Amino acid sequence: APTVVALYDYTANRSDELTIHRGDIIRVFFKDNEDWWYGSIGKGQEGYFPANHVASE
């Protein structure tokens, strides 16, 4: 899976979202739409995150 790096912190608001912190490396499983992508950090943490909070490595 491609990876991206978090540019900003984001705290999940729902159970299907992913909390990310600046500098996190996120594996992107799919891009649901322009605004929300689905991916994982490490083991067990996965969910939707805002695409405008990340950039290609």
Rank of each mutant, 00 (worst) to 15 (best):
A1T: 15
P2A: 07
P2L: 15
P2G: 15
P2Q: 15
P2K: 13
V4F: 12
V4S: 04
V5Q: 10
A6E: 01
A6M: 00
A6C: 12
A6Q: 05
L7C: 08
L7A: 08
L7I: 07
L7K: 12
Y8K: 13
Y8G: 06
Y8P: 01
Y8H: 14
Y8W: 08
D9A: 06
Y10C: 05
Y10K: 04
Y10L: 02
Y10P: 03
T11Q: 10
A12S: 12
A12R: 07
A12W: 00
N13W: 05
N13V: 14
R14Y: 12
R14T: 13
R14P: 01
S15V: 09
S15M: 11
S15D: 10
S15E: 13
S15I: 13
D16Q: 09
E17N: 00
E17R: 08
E17K: 02
E17Y: 05
L18K: 03
L18P: 11
L18V: 05
L18R: 01
T19M: 01
T19E: 04
T19G: 02
T19R: 00
T19N: 10
I20W: 03
I20H: 04
I20C: 06
I20K: 06
H21C: 13
H21D: 01
H21P: 00
R22S: 12
R22K: 15
R22L: 02
G23I: 05
G23K: 03
G23M: 03
G23R: 01
D24S: 05
D24E: 05
D24V: 03
D24R: 00
D24G: 00
D24W: 01
I25Q: 09
I25W: 06
I26W: 00
I26M: 06
R27I: 14
R27F: 08
R27V: 07
R27E: 15
V28G: 00
F29H: 15
F29K: 15
K31V: 06
K31L: 06
D32G: 13
N33G: 09
N33C: 10
N33E: 07
N33W: 04
E34Y: 06
E34G: 08
E34S: 11
D35S: 11
D35Q: 11
D35K: 13
D35L: 08
W36Q: 04
W36L: 04
W36D: 05
W37F: 05
W37K: 01
W37D: 05
W37R: 01
Y38I: 04
Y38R: 00
Y38N: 02
G39R: 02
G39C: 01
G39P: 01
G39M: 01
S40H: 05
S40E: 12
I41Y: 06
G42C: 12
G42R: 14
G42H: 15
G42W: 08
G42Y: 13
K43D: 12
K43G: 12
K43P: 11
G44E: 12
G44K: 10
G44H: 05
G44L: 06
Q45H: 10
Q45S: 07
Q45W: 05
Q45C: 12
Q45R: 14
G47C: 03
G47M: 03
G47N: 06
Y48G: 02
Y48C: 03
Y48H: 07
Y48I: 00
F49Q: 01
P50I: 04
P50S: 07
P50A: 03
A51K: 07
A51H: 08
A51P: 03
A51N: 02
A51M: 03
N52K: 13
N52R: 11
N52Y: 02
H53G: 06
H53A: 15
H53K: 11
H53I: 15
H53P: 04
V54L: 02
V54A: 05
V54S: 02
V54H: 04
V54E: 03
V54W: 03
A55Y: 11
A55L: 13
A55Q: 14
A55D: 11
S56P: 11
S56K: 11
S56T: 14
E57K: 14
E57G: 09
